[in-house]
Design a protein around this nucleic acid. Structure first.
Length: 377
DNA sequence: AACATACTCAACCGCCCTGTA
DNA sequence: GTACAGGGCGGTTGAGTATGT
């Protein structure tokens, strides 16, 4: 339409409001109501445009304005609503009594948006950022080395921050899942374990990462699609997993005694054994190895029977969200399956051997007892 | 102590929607 | 159907403040 803004009129004051102006505005509105905002300034004796008066009133002077820091509950509510409504600040504000759209918008732009970005999430879509997803294995590798190697020379401030970032990313994936779950639970009871409860919100900022971090750094020279082989607890003294590029090249692999990788497994036909230290050495010596797409989903204390319990590939954290539609987890060897290829027929969410419910999936991810998850702060 | 940088948030800008003549 | 007024909304700005060097 394109009409000139009301404040273009010359002579009208702009900028910060003085206490006297505030007093005039409040007095007038309390006595007469705001009526026509355009007419109000004259009636109230203010040299302001009506729009400026309206903003001052609605964003600052209104008696029911709630000031001060946002509570955790409010923060969770904003995150939740933003994931559904996007930048509809007024709509979000309508769910937060006493908060203005402007205040929520500011809080979003100065806090929550940055928080999401830091955690590797696109603040607009609330989906994991794919550009960062590709770096996650690297972050995890650093974190893993820190966790497993006492060589303090490789532990520096940078690594510490990267580890924290990796953990934060995982946390937020979890939160994202909770939020998605809460949206869906409002229309269905498909996931009663995670009904969003505004009275008892999840506090991600206080969540600890109760899982070990591991990454696999591999040499992909001969095979871009390495497979993961699970230790059957006989060849490796029960030490856990083996990463095998399933090729004739000398495998460069790392395995961790207590971590379950998120890739469907084949029978350990081409298993190669390492002990923990030799694998760590390999990693340390192979700085330019390519990182893989494996994600850790559970600590493990498996036996040979656990061959059926490998759960999901997860090259993209966005694909971590459990798929309750099921699918089958097979153990067939299919080397065309890039680790993390969720379309792969050799792996799926919630398939055989996978956790039977979303909550158990996440409890595996975070190594938390499902019963405890309800009590997260 | 001085300066630089980062952060916060009130306020403004301009577009859009709705009601009305 | 069209034009316009009024209000609402989301994006952006910039002054003030806090923090770091």
């Amino acid at each position: 339409m394109g009409r000139s803004p009301c404040c273009d009129e010359s002579g009208l004051k702009k900028g910060p409001w003085t206490p006297e102006e505030d007093q005039k505005l409040v007095y007038h509105i309390q006595k007469h109501g705001h009526g026509s905002w355009r007419a109000l300034p004259k009636l109230a004796g203010l040299n302001r445009c009506g729009k400026s008066c309206r903003l001052r009133w609605t964003n600052y002077l209104r008696p029911d304005i709630k000031r001060g820091k946002f509570s955790q509950e409010e923060e969770q509510t904003i995150l939740h609503l933003h994931s559904i409504l996007g930048n509809k600040w007024s709509a979000i504000a309508s769910h937060l009594p006493g908060r203005t759209d402007n205040e929520i918008k500011n809080f979003w732009n100065t806090h929550l948006k940055k928080k999401l970005i830091q955690m590797g999430f696109d603040p607009m879509t609330h989906q994991p950022r794919t550009d960062l997803v590709s770096t996650l294995p690297y972050l995890l590798a650093l974190a893993s080395m820190m966790d497993n190697n006492n060589n303090t020379s490789i532990i520096d401030e940078h690594a510490l921050s990267l580890q924290a970032e990796a953990i934060q990313m995982a946390k937020l994936q979890y939160l994202h899942y909770l939020l998605q779950s809460s949206s869906s639970s409002s229309s269905s009871s498909s996931n009663p374990n995670f009904a969003f409860d505004q009275n008892n919100p999840i506090n991600i900022t206080n969540m600890e990462a109760p899982f070990s971090l591991l990454n696999v750094k591999e040499n992909h020279n001969n095979n871009p699609n390495p497979s993961v082989i699970m230790d059957d607890n006989t060849n490796n003294n029960g030490n856990g997993i083996i990463i095998d590029d399933d090729s004739s090249c000398q495998p460069l692999h790392y395995y961790h005694p207590n971590v379950l990788l998120s890739h469907s497994l084949d029978p350990p036909s081409q298993q190669v054994s390492f002990n923990s230290q030799s694998c760590l050495n390999n990693i340390n010596e192979q700085g330019q190895g390519t990182t893989t797409n494996y994600a850790i989903i559970s600590q493990m204390d498996h036996t040979a029977d656990d061959n059926s319990s490998w759960i999901v590939p997860s090259s993209s954290p966005s694909s971590i969200a459990p798929n309750n539609n099921g699918g089958s987890t097979t153990t067939s060897n299919n080397n065309n399956n890039t680790p993390g290829d969720t379309s792969s027929t050799t792996s799926s969410y919630g398939g055989e051997g996978a956790p039977s419910s979303s909550s158990s999936y996440w409890s595996e991810l975070f190594l938390v007892d499902p019963a405890i998850m309800h009590e997260l702060p």
